[in-house]
């Protein structure tokens, strides 16, 4: 009877009183956008074929998320409720375009590898979701922290996928060969199907860790 009520107040407490680190860690681990919330999966599956691509994509998304969260939070009293979604999209699209140019200016190769998926950050539901669910209702500082946490969580998840796929699919990490030259590449890992396999593997690991933790806590609570 008291269990659901307890968790509810606990959750609210953490939102209201918890220190800044808690908001950050929430995005990085407890509510990781990819492994726990399972949102914004398109780039996760599409451009995680090498560690470099995955990291670049994660950082670009994190940048857009940070900027849009900040701006949305600043403007949260200015934006009328009726047109908020179009305003958010406008803001997000601006920063996506900026990120697009920035990546092009950094490396043509990288821009080619990420392709259309940079522009598609606009429709990543993680960014719009954070703007709507968090930044529009919270102060600028907490919104920045939330964006940093979620961005870091997203980048971390993409990197996890990219590293495994590049290691098995190409025998290297960040383009540096890890295995001897006679390593047999698993071609499937570089193909879209490999993204699904790797994601399943990581989700399995995440859930197994979570369940083990829960069991431990339950074991402590019982005696």
């Amino acid at each position: 009877m008291s269990v659901p009520a307890k968790t509810k107040t606990g959750f609210l407490d953490s939102l209201e009183k918890s220190p800044a680190t808690d908001i950050f860690l929430k995005g990085l681990w407890r509510k990781n956008p990819t492994f726990v919330q399972v949102i914004g999966m398109c780039p996760v599956l599409a451009v995680s074929n090498t560690a470099e691509n995955a990291l670049a994509m994660g950082l670009a998304t994190a940048f857009v998320l940070l900027m849009s969260n900040t701006l949305v939070s600043i403007l949260r009293f200015v934006i009328p409720k009726q047109v908020r979604i179009s305003c958010y999209i406008l803001i997000i699209a601006t920063f996506v375009t900026m990120a697009d140019y920035a990546i092009q200016a950094m490396s043509v190769e990288l821009h080619k590898a990420l392709g259309a998926f940079i522009s598609l950050i606009v429709v990543n539901c993680l960014i719009l979701g954070r703007a709507e669910a968090f930044a529009s209702k919270n102060t600028v500082e907490t919104s920045v922290l939330d964006a940093l946490g979620m961005g870091a969580g997203f980048t971390f998840a993409l990197f996890c996928l990219g590293a495994v796929r590049e290691l098995l699919g190409n025998g290297s990490l960040f383009g540096i060969a890890v295995f001897p030259a006679s390593f047999q590449e698993w071609v499937v890992m570089m193909l879209p199907a490999g993204g699904f396999f790797t994601l399943a593997l990581w989700l399995f690991i995440f859930n197994a860790v979570k369940r083990a933790k829960q069991n431990k806590e339950r074991g402590k609570a019982l005696p």
Binding site: W186, V187, V188, M189, L191
Partner: peptide, 8 residues
């Protein structure tokens, strides 16, 4: 099918 895709 996995082997076919992985080690063609």
């Amino acid at each position: 099918a996995f082997l076919q895709a992985a080690f063609p």
